[in-house]
Design a binder for these strands. Structure first.
Lengths: 153, 153
DNA sequence: GCAGCCTTGTAAGGCTTCCGTACTAAAATA
DNA sequence: TATTTTAGTACGGAAGCCTTACAAGGCTGC
């Protein structure tokens, strides 16, 4: 029997973050595909994850998602066509439109958030509640500047 | 002075993971761009991050990166053209080729890993060593199955 | 009240990264 | 030897995002 040396190679952090995101995202995708909202993809998160309850402007969504207005606009158009949101003129600014979830959109958002929290809970069961709590704590610290204030509700 | 209620809204885990990866990746890109290897991008990590010291087969790299052979093959071809790796026939299998870093490739790999570890150290300074250690621990636990054994060196 | 600048949203086109289908050649298996 | 599996490649395409360019409304200073 060979007495193998433990080689304590540090896995590159970038790979860990990538793999963890990927694991979470693919699980999320899989579960959403089993619901009535199977046409929702991860990409749509730039809207669902950043929109205010009363609606938001495109510019606002783009800033929060760290994407261009055009990119978020494309996603919004797709969600609009599928009945998840509507664009209504902003009464306080003739150029602007308020992007606002429809009832169906709010249902999809709630369901998505439910699944996301469910996966986190399962991670806690599987890998340890402390560990996942620490994961959340660290991620929140590390992304605090980037994500700004916690969106209302 | 208004006594604002703390609204304990949980940020969706998927967004935290995404933002953290993005923060790390963009910092990495920025720093690599300031080196002699400025043509290396994040995408190239599927090779640099998974290749064995003595070289690996394309199929092997693809499995570890959880990508198709075609995708990794494209990346490999680009790296080959830029002098970071070479494909040599596998003496033990006439179909296979061994993908192997050149000297320049090894330099780029070492430099990249140095920067990656540097960023992690800076995160530790900025956000707390415990926190970042816990982050690493949790990410390793969560991605253990997915990433398999730690690659040698 | 108007000239010039800024902001909001859109249009059009392009790039990167990845995948699916299809194929060749070599190896393994029956 | 005939058949099936495996390694790698070619090709076309889709998704997701960006850049450039623009129209229309708002704002500021005179």
């Amino acid at each position: 029997m060979s007495t193998e040396l433990e080689i304590p190679t540090r896995r590159p952090m970038i790979g860990l973050l990538d793999a963890a995101f990927d694991a979470f995202a693919s699980e999320l995708e899989r579960r959403v595909a089993d619901t009535a909202f199977r046409d929702i993809r991860i990409t749509h998160g730039c809207v669902f994850g950043n929109i205010e309850p009363d609606g938001s402007r495109l510019t606002e969504l783009a800033q929060r998602a760290r994407m261009t207005k055009q990119s978020v606009g494309e996603v919004a158009t797709e969600l609009e066509q599928r009945g998840y949101l509507e664009r209504v003129p902003d009464p306080s600014d003739g150029r602007a439109k308020i992007i606002r979830l429809t009832e169906r959109g709010r249902e999809a958002q709630a369901l998505g958030r439910g699944i996301i929290d469910e996966i986190e809970r399962e991670w806690a069961e599987r890998y340890g509640a402390d560990r996942v709590a620490a994961l959340r704590d660290a991620l929140e610290a590390v992304t605090a500047e980037r994500l700004g204030a916690v969106p209302v509700a």
